[in-house]
Simulated scan of single mutants.
Amino acid sequence: MAGFSIRGLVCFVAGHGPALLLAGVAQAATGHVVEQQVPGVYHQQIGTLQVTALFDGTVALGRQELVGIEPGAVTRLLDHRYVPEDGKGLQTAVNAYLVQSGRHLTLVDTGTAQCFGPGLGQVLGNLRAAGYDPAEVDDVLLTHAHPDHLCGLLDANGKAAYPNATVWLSQTDADYWLNPASEATAPQGVRFAFALARKAVAPYDAAGKVRRFSAGQALPTGVTALDSQGHTPGHVSWQLDGGSQQLLVWGDIVHFHAVQFAQPTASYEADSDRTAAIASRRAMMTQAADHGWWVAGAHLPFPGLGHVRHEGDAFAWVPGEFAPLPAR
């Protein structure tokens, strides 16, 4: 491995197979067992944008959390897709994305930080491993206010992880998730998320750095918020202009990639409005496929960058090919 830089390598975490194989080779050659992957960082040039995928960790989602689709159909779609599954559920990545345009740094979503226990909360460390200082981030765009997307606004000490950034959250999601009155009437299973959301944005709010936006209001240059409500009341997907190419960071349009591209009508149990979530999923997939946009997905296998193509009345995911960065 002489001559290779760890910083530039990709951390693929779709399963333990490659890590175990690597460990076996290392042990056979040197007697040393490799116990961890390289940092979860991947760079992709998209037009004028340098995009860095940041791995936060994985969560397990049970196949029973898919609704609107028969269990037998789920089994058939998962067959030979090789999605790791244990007693807790299907392995599902949590990703965030740092986008550099010129000297401007934009972070889309922030990961889980301390909210979901061990194995997650790696975005901030991976951002540093990629060579960036969190204090350099200018804007944080939140797709929605769930803990795995905004808890990472805080560092391990509960302070603002991105002290100089402006945080952008849709007015609709802010009105719901930051309002204690909403918590009292919310389904029991999601009530824990309200306090986490309020805590995460508090230091930014105190500094006057939270922008609650509605349709038609000004956003950072080169950024468009696309209404993709359904998973939450104010869920948005972010389109970033790379000149010759466009990037769509679509948040939680997909949770079960092996199922929902082929069956867009299959919903996630946690969707607040399943009908709206299905409509948003079809709309985002259709636009991405029709226009050839790059897509970044919070819960697609890391690095979660690629394209969508039409497949009959449904869709398919086309992972991006590894590519070297252009010379600077």
Rank of each mutant, 00 (worst) to 15 (best):
A130R: 01
D56I: 11
L141P: 04
D138V: 06
D155M: 13
T106N: 07
Q45Y: 01
Q37A: 08
A156K: 15
L77H: 10
E70T: 05
L49R: 07
V123H: 14
L49I: 07
D155W: 14
V99Q: 07
P118W: 05
P147F: 13
Q91K: 12
G152M: 10
H149Y: 12
A73H: 00
Q50F: 02
T112P: 02
F55N: 03
Q36G: 07
L77F: 05
H146E: 14
T166E: 11
T110G: 04
V41N: 02
G111S: 12
Q91M: 12
A161D: 09
P84M: 09
N95V: 11
V59N: 11
P84V: 10
G102C: 05
E70F: 00
G119I: 04
V83S: 11
V67K: 09
T110K: 07
L105T: 04
P39E: 08
D133F: 00
G40A: 05
Q100V: 01
D56E: 11
R63G: 04
F116L: 14
G47E: 03
F116I: 09
L98F: 08
R76D: 00
Y97I: 06
P84K: 12
Q45G: 01
G119Q: 06
Y132Q: 08
A93Y: 01
D148W: 14
T48Y: 02
V41E: 02
E136C: 06
A156W: 14
E85K: 13
N157Q: 13
Q114R: 15
V167H: 03
T75A: 13
V67W: 02
P71E: 01
V123W: 09
L141E: 05
Q122C: 09
G68K: 09
K159G: 06
V94A: 00
A135D: 02
L120Y: 09
Q100D: 01
A130K: 00
W168G: 07
N95F: 11
T52P: 01
I69W: 02
F55E: 04
G119N: 07
D56P: 12
L105N: 02
L153P: 04
Q36S: 12
P84E: 12
Q114M: 13
G111T: 13
L150M: 15
H149L: 14
Q44A: 11
T52L: 01
S101N: 13
Q100C: 01
T112N: 06
P71K: 00
L142T: 15
V51P: 03
P134K: 14
T52N: 02
A161G: 12
Q50G: 01
L169N: 15
F55V: 01
P118E: 06
K88S: 15
L107K: 07
C115Y: 11
L141V: 12
G119K: 10
G62Y: 04
R81P: 00
V108Y: 03
L124Y: 08
V59M: 12
